[in-house]
């Protein structure tokens, strides 16, 4: 194992409602592989993101062999995703998917130039169809990570948050509310599923897995 290669950048967890506002991008660090990062409005740099949601669109232009794009929806909004000539496996995998489908995406956080300025998107590294339950796990995970970022936002040492406040004038409340709504939506779905599988109205409203943590 090489000791001198830089450590891998972690995949951040972020809801679409927040990610759509992550328009500021910067090359960070002084290494040979200075990574490109987008700044999340709640104050964290993201080189990579991990997303789970419903793949709702695939646009595969027959004229461009080496490009494909699509859209992933989470409880709060949609992520534009795409893959290009450097991600042949991602292109092949995206061609095999048939929306709508539950998918997990690991990808690079990047922006592209839109009509009215930079627009964040996700450049797909890995995409696979997944069981529905992972959607619930991701929403819980992403809500927790959002809560952590919001908690740390006002720390004096949080340079990313200071820059986010400067660049975006971040209104934190809307990202908190979006995360709350996402958890409520998943709670509702779980309750409905339980009602279907467990018609007894007096049954204890708990899902399998409670109390295992």
């Amino acid at each position: 194992m090489s000791q001198s290669t830089p450590s891998r950048n972690p995949a951040r967890r972020v809801f679409a409602w927040e990610y759509k506002d992550a328009t500021y991008e910067e090359t960070r660090g002084d290494g040979d592989r200075s990574p490109n990062m987008v700044l999340l409005p709640t104050g964290q740099w993201a080189h990579r993101v991990f997303l789970v949601g419903s793949l709702v669109d695939i646009v595969d232009d027959p004229d461009s062999e080496n490009y494909i794009r699509g859209e992933l929806q989470d409880p709060t909004g949609r992520f534009p995703i795409d893959a290009g000539q450097f991600e042949p496996e991602a292109i092949a995998n995206m061609r095999q998917l048939d929306p709508p489908e539950f998918v997990a995406v690991t990808g690079k956080a990047v922006t592209f130039s839109g009509d009215s300025g930079p627009v964040p998107k996700v450049r797909v590294e890995s995409i696979t169809d997944i069981p529905e339950a992972l959607y619930d796990s991701w929403v819980k995970d992403t809500a927790e990570k959002t809560a952590t970022r919001l908690t740390n936002f006002s720390n004096d040492a949080n340079d990313a948050a200071a820059l986010a406040a400067e660049r975006y004038g971040t209104d934190l409340e809307q990202y908190r509310d979006a995360a709350i709504e996402a958890t409520e939506e998943v709670q509702e779905i779980i309750r409905e599923e339980m009602a279907e599988t467990e018609p007894d109205p007096d049954a204890s409203p708990t899902a399998p897995g409670v109390g295992q943590d």
Partner: peptide, 16 residues
């Protein structure tokens, strides 16, 4: 890991 229960999600919601 087990998928979250309604209670697990409630805890996160309350934290938020």
């Amino acid at each position: 890991l087990n998928p979250p229960s309604v209670t697990d999600l409630e805890n996160v919601k309350q934290e938020l």
